[in-house]
């Protein structure tokens, strides 16, 4: 049997490190739009990061793992939703500002138009008992889903006393004391970053610190 794939020019013996990742050039704007439109149309229930990774890293190869995580890090550290921030950042990497705009539009168009249509229908049927009973069920289901997603994201942190303290302080301030989010972000934020400030020493010093703190 002969291989149907022609030898790749420049391919060398095994053991050679893979070529360094480079941002693909001249990806057509319509392709960026369609890719994000597809992600925007199929990503349900907060799992958008998984859809983004499958599409951008694995299927399209527009980003490698490191650049994907770096873009995700920016999206999470800055205000705004992960999904839309990611679309803007990735679109910008590929094609500058026009790329960012078409990626954002694709990401929000399917859900935005659908929720608006539902919202118009809801406003017209606010006194319909069937609509209201259905939405009571949806609301209860949303609580279950939000709790599950919160626990999935937070469960790694629950083993560290410092993380638990920050989580508890935040919930206390927001849900019990009803302190405005601005003040919570301006107080807990800097304190939390300070508590995780860079330490001198080897890689992984933070984890060691955390273990020490937990020890009696």
């Amino acid at each position: 049997m002969t291989s149907s794939t022609p030898p790749v020019p420049g391919a060398t013996a095994e053991g050679e490190p893979p070529a360094p990742y480079a941002v693909p050039r001249n990806v057509p704007l319509w392709e960026i739009f369609v890719t994000f439109l597809f992600i925007g149309a199929i990503s349900f229930g907060g799992g958008v990061v998984a859809y983004l990774r499958a599409s951008l890293v694995i299927k399209k190869g527009w980003l490698d793992e490191d650049h994907f995580l770096s873009a995700l890090g920016i999206s999470q550290a800055l205000p705004g939703l992960n999904a839309t921030n990611m679309s803007i950042i990735v679109g910008d990497r590929l094609r500058g500002l026009p790329g960012a705009l078409v990626a954002f539009t694709g990401m929000t168009l399917p859900g935005g138009s659908m929720v608006l249509a539902l919202g118009v229908a809801y406003a017209a049927n606010a006194h319909n008992p069937y609509v209201n009973a259905t939405l009571v069920g949806v609301g209860a289901a949303a609580v279950g889903m939000l709790s599950a997603v919160t626990l999935q994201i937070g469960h790694k942190q629950l083993g560290q006393i410092l993380n638990v303290a920050i989580i508890a302080a935040t919930v206390l301030m927001v849900s019990v004391l009803h302190i405005s989010l601005i003040w919570v972000l301006l107080t807990v934020g800097p304190v939390a970053v300070f508590l995780f400030r860079p330490r001198k020493g080897a890689e992984g010093a933070d984890e060691a610190d955390a273990r020490e703190r937990k020890a009696p």
Binding site: I153, N163, I167, F196, D206
Partner: peptide
């Protein structure tokens, strides 16, 4: 990133 992670989890819980 490390400092904001538990803050975000707290806000999600709220």
């Amino acid at each position: 990133q490390q400092g904001l992670a538990p803050l975000v989890v707290g806000l999600m819980a709220s």
